[in-house]
């Protein structure tokens, strides 16, 4: 039973990370109908920036927030410079641009930092934490906490601020938004910035677990797709819940179904994507897809 609880909690920790990346995907998808395949690599790059700051002796939380700011600016710039010129092109063009971005970020990171794995510190104490009779990893609990804080922040931003409202409006109805004076292009860019920030948090929280290397996010992106598909690509909250479910299932299956073990875990994610797409294509919380014409 203890093992069960431990696995659930560490599943929630990684699930929160999948959920965050899924949320970043959904935020951009809702605003622009673009699935940002480079989301994982953007997060990886942010994590390397954090690593650089930490290596330069910057204290952890300063490096953490510094990375968030840089990632936000980087996300905005990527949208303005790379995505904007192809904004109105067919969706396939945008997908190819995103994949190009993925490859570029990956190779630039490899070129600057090499492909050798690097340890990445956790801000949480290495000592495990006892809750009742069960022992939990401090980083697992901390990562869950950080994820919750990020989600609460985003929720409050979109729900209660005028800018958040304008961003939701721009995603839904660009024409009406312009008639309200909203600069739709900038709203999309800010959306990319926020998504990059959320991705950066996910990267910094997962790096202590999987170690830092340029391909660190590849597997996580698959899980994030599974999460977003499960929760519904049209539902930000669903993406997060989807992430938690995927994280927990992944961990339990890896622990209790012995022929799967760690090697085949990724297959579980793909199987989940397939099952959802076949039986409930809009996901658990999504609205049925309505295509723009």
């Amino acid at each position: 039973m203890e093992i069960f609880f431990q696995q659930v909690v560490s599943g929630l920790a990684t699930g929160g990370i999948y959920g965050s990346v899924a949320l970043a995907l959904v935020m951009i998808y809702q605003a622009t109908d673009v699935v940002n395949y480079a989301q994982g690599e953007m997060a990886m790059f942010s994590t390397y920036l954090a690593w650089t700051l930490l290596n330069a002796g910057v204290p952890y939380w300063w490096a953490f927030f510094g990375t968030l700011v840089i990632s936000f600016v980087g996300g905005v710039l990527i949208e303005r410079v790379v995505i904007r010129p192809v904004e109105n092109k067919p969706i396939l063009t945008i997908v190819i641009v995103c994949i190009g971005l993925l490859v570029i970020l990956n190779s630039v990171a490899g070129w600057i930092y090499s492909y050798i794995q690097k340890p990445f510190p956790s801000p949480f104490p290495p000592r495990p934490i006892m809750l009742g009779t069960v022992v939990f990893g401090a980083h697992d609990l901390g990562a869950i906490g950080v994820t919750l804080v990020v989600l609460a922040f985003l929720y409050a931003f979109f729900r209660f601020t005028t800018l958040g409202l304008a961003m939701r409006a721009a995603a839904q109805n660009p024409v009406s938004s312009r008639l309200c004076g909203i600069r739709v292009g900038w709203m999309l860019a800010i959306g990319w910035g926020l998504a990059a920030m959320v991705g950066a948090v996910a990267g910094m929280m997962v790096a202590p677990i999987v170690f830092l290397d340029p391909n660190m996010m590849a597997g996580i992106l698959i899980y994030a797709f599974a999460s977003a598909t499960l929760g519904g690509f049209t539902s930000p909250g669903g993406a997060v819940v989807g992430g938690l479910i995927v994280g927990v299932i992944e961990n339990l299956v890896g622990t209790y179904v012995h022929f799967i073990g760690t090697e085949l875990k990724l297959t579980v994610a793909l199987a989940m994507i397939l099952i959802v797409l076949v039986f409930k294509p809009s996901g658990l919380f999504g609205r049925a897809a309505v295509h723009r014409v």
Partner: peptide, 25 residues
């Protein structure tokens, strides 16, 4: 100010949010 053809409602936003957006500029 323009009340456009087709009404341009933000269908997923509340009535009050719709109105607040009108004052955005």
């Amino acid at each position: 100010g323009h009340a456009p053809e087709g009404r341009g409602t933000f269908v997923n936003l509340t009535v009050e949010e719709n109105l607040r957006l009108g004052a955005y500029a």
